[in-house]
């Protein structure tokens, strides 16, 4: 058990070495951009261009890697959307909705109705999914 927990936590963790390397590269890339400005002011347009390209590539690569790391952690989570249980009174139609509790099942008789004291029934258990923006296709 402990082995599995430690394994799963190590899977989800970001490597500190990788993080330090990204931060150093980012600093160097920003420095390259400053140097590019300096070179341009000195009239060395070719050098300025190269440093500018190096700087932008560095900043872009670091941002991409940081975003990828964040995405990896988000992807590693098992999302559990809330499950709702609908309870209905078959006699008076009184309806309540609550969060799913262990032991609930559809057509289970539960607590008496608040209005008519008749036993209530679980009539629905489902999860609601909020659809992400759907890509529109002509077909």
């Amino acid at each position: 058990m402990s082995k599995a927990s430690s394994e799963s936590s190590s899977t989800a963790k970001i490597s500190s070495f990788a993080l330090i390397a990204i931060i150093i590269t980012l600093v160097v890339a920003i420095m390259a951009l400053f140097n590019a400005v300096q070179a341009y002011l000195m009239g060395e347009v070719d050098v300025a261009t190269i440093l500018l390209i190096v700087g932008f590539i560095g900043v872009g690569a670091c941002t991409y890697m940081l975003l990828q790391m964040r995405q990896r952690i988000i992807r590693l989570r098992i999302e559990m959307p809330p499950i709702t249980t609908t309870i209905e009174c078959r006699k008076c139609g009184f309806k309540t909705v609550r969060e799913f509790q262990r032991g609930d099942y559809i057509f289970k008789e539960v607590e008496p109705c608040q209005k008519c004291n008749e036993k209530m029934l679980i009539t629905a258990i489902y999860r609601e999914v909020r659809e992400k923006m759907k890509a529109t296709f002509p077909f």
Partner: peptide, 24 residues
């Protein structure tokens, strides 16, 4: 490592500034 990298970058800039356009 960071200090070394910054020094290397400064040297590169200096070297590039002294370099003739054709060689570049």
């Amino acid at each position: 490592m960071a200090v070394m990298l910054l020094a290397a970058l400064a040297t590169l800039q200096k070297w590039l500034l002294q370099m003739p356009g054709e060689l570049f």
